[in-house]
Design a protein around this nucleic acid. Structure first.
Lengths: 165, 165
DNA sequence: ATTATGTTTCAATTATTCCTGAAAGGATTG
DNA sequence: CAATCCTTTCAGGAATAATTGAAACATAAT
């Protein structure tokens, strides 16, 4: 049984997960594993969080594919156990990277194509707007690429922002 | 009828909208208005984008509540017309602000509560993990607050990042 | 006051996403 | 190699979210 604080954290981690575009179950499982000193098996997860085994299994699989968690084995035990990836950064970046490519990039590329294809008598205001938008998105694009390029690079960016604040 | 480039931009803007947590219709309408030199009325929107009037009306209302678009009137015309907010920043920030408060903040607060309530014999590894996560989220929190504090502040941050890249 | 024109609301429908549970699949043990 | 234990898959069901369309509402013109 989980304490109230544990539950609350797990649930709000779930909501934050939705913000990142991962579903609630996955995020809750991830939160639970963050709070577990010992490796945890599938049954414990599904019982504690009230998630079906099927769902838990799929969620664990996907979390694993993102490098968010690892599967480990206890000797003399047939079950699989799971632990979180020790480095919290890694997961955040993996997720961010995927979403950026799937959703951000296409919009930027479409915008650029639009601007290059546009006939020259494109109306002035529209042009100005698109130009401004393109500038913003391009910078965001560059920043994200840099941030997602290497752990070192991202940490440096993080520090710069930290100092700015 | 829209050109192919226009359509493509509108559709991918729709996907990007989903990334931000606004629904496809709203994002498409917003894109369409960005591409219109002239103020546009509800019928044109609903016909051009194949969106029902009801949906268009609701979407326009919500876009307006976010300051993403404005309603204007043409003299001698009964209809309402819509134009995009001239400053692209404003909308992005409004949206970011809302989502941050609804989804990010609760997770951070829950994490902090968890850490303060935790019994002292909390296990070392878990503690280390939570501490690391709290540091990251706190910094993100501070950065976002700063960015959302004022237009000037956000532009400064934007420039800093631009230079870093 | 009535009609004509345009907008908004909202219950019902449709689409999408998420989750379940049972069956199939693997691996280990006796 | 059969039995046991655990995991994975996936079709169907449940829950959510988005969208429609028709009715109610509002306003201006006649």
């Amino acid at each position: 049984m989980l304490s109230e604080e544990y539950s609350r954290f797990i649930e709000s981690w779930g909501s934050l997960g939705v913000f990142w575009g991962i579903n609630r179950s996955m995020a809750r499982i991830h939160a639970f594993l963050m709070l577990s000193e010992q490796p945890v098996d599938l049954d414990t997860i599904s019982d504690t969080l009230n998630i079906s085994r099927g769902n838990a299994s799929m969620s664990l699989k996907e979390l694993r594919s993102w490098g968010a968690i690892q599967r480990v084995h206890a000797s003399g035990d047939r079950r699989d156990f799971y632990i979180v990836e020790q480095d919290a950064w890694r997961m955040l970046f993996k997720i961010a990277k995927g979403r950026k490519e799937r959703e951000f990039n296409p919009a930027l590329y479409a915008l650029r194509d639009l601007m290059s294809e546009a006939d020259t008598e494109q109306q002035a205001q529209v042009n100005a707007r698109l130009t401004q938008m393109e500038e913003i998105l391009s910078t965001v694009h560059a920043v994200m690429n840099k941030a997602l390029e290497s752990e070192k690079s991202s940490k440096r960016m993080f520090d710069i922002l930290k100092n700015f604040v």
